Structure formats: C-alpha cells, structure tokens
Amino acid sequence: MKKLLFIGIFSIILAGCGDNKVTNEYLIGKWDCDTTTFTYINNLKQYFKLNQKKYHFNMEEKDGQLFTGSDVDERDFKTGKYSFELSDDTIINDVVAVKNGDSEFFVTIISDIYDKNSVDRSESAKLEAICTRIK
C-alpha cells in the first residue's frame, strides 16, 4: 500500500484549464509536498484517513519526458487516466492537479487496486497533497 501511494504521488496527470493548468514546464524544479493518505472501507462506503507525511522531489525533463527523482523513487509522468501492473495487482489511477499561483499546486489521486485473479476491486486508496516549490 505504501509503495502504491508513492507511485501515485509521482504519477500526476497534468489537468486543469486557464491559469490553473499544471504544465510540464511548471512542474520542473524542486517541490515539497504535504500528503494525506486515505483508505476506502467498502462496508462503510467512505474514505478514512491513514496518515500524513511530507515528501521532497525534484522534477526534471529527460529526453522530452518528465521524471522525478525523490526520496522515494524515480517515476515518469503519464497523462490521462491510466492503469499499470504491480506484482499480482492491476492499479487504475485517476489524478487531478490544479495550480495555485506560481509556487503551489494541489493534487488528488484515487487509486483502485484489482487483484489479477478477481474482477472485483480489492482495495481503494486516496492521496491528497499540497506541493510547494522550493526556491
């Protein structure tokens, strides 16, 4: 679960419109993110807070793609709603990022995890982050 949330924070979809649009150029640089993670309880049909943490990462462009080198991992950035496989699970991420001024953006990531041996969703997690540019 922890690795999934780390992957999620670094799998930001570049979404928004007008002055709130998060672009590749905007994301290049060093960032501190205050994150809150939640887990979805099926029988209660709502998310509950798991923890809060702070992460630091440096966004760079390599060969025309964005990558982040962080205290967690290095990931490339993907656009649009997407899925990927991790061990015995398939993860579907839905991420929204909105710019708040020149040095801050907000991110919400919802990850649905499906066991490869089942058609039912086995787990869902949500991560919310406020990221501030480091000068």
Rank of each mutant, 00 (worst) to 15 (best):
K3D: 15
E85F: 03
E128H: 08
D63Y: 10
N20T: 14
Q46K: 15
E85M: 01
D76E: 11
G69P: 02
V22A: 03
I7P: 01
F67N: 03
T108V: 14
G16M: 07
D71L: 04
G16W: 13
I110K: 05
F57M: 13
I110G: 00
G101F: 09
L4T: 15
F105V: 10
L4W: 13
K99F: 08
D19E: 14
S103T: 13
C17G: 11
L44C: 06
T37S: 11
A125C: 09
F10L: 08
E85P: 00
K3W: 09
Y82V: 13
F105M: 04
G29T: 04
A97M: 06
R121M: 07
V107C: 00
A15V: 14
W31I: 03
C131N: 07
T108A: 06
F105T: 08
D32N: 13
I109P: 00
N43F: 15
D63P: 01
L27F: 11
I9T: 12
L27T: 05
K2V: 14
Y82M: 12
F57E: 09
F67S: 06
N117F: 08
F106M: 06
C33I: 15
K81S: 08
F105C: 05
D63F: 08
F6V: 15
F67Q: 07
Y55E: 07
M59Q: 09
T39H: 10
V119A: 04
E25A: 15
D19F: 10
I28M: 04
I92L: 03
E74S: 09
F105S: 01
G80N: 12
I113D: 02
L66D: 00
K116L: 09
Y47E: 09
L127M: 11
S111F: 01
D73K: 04
K116H: 04
D34N: 12
I130S: 05
F106E: 03
K62V: 12
S11H: 09
D32I: 14
G69C: 05
G8P: 10
H56G: 02
T79F: 04
V96N: 12
W31K: 04
D63T: 00
E104D: 07
R133W: 13
I91H: 03
A129W: 11
I91A: 05
D73E: 14
K30I: 01
Y26K: 06
G29F: 06
T35P: 00
R121G: 00
I91L: 14
R75C: 08
V22G: 01
K62A: 12
G18H: 07
D63C: 06
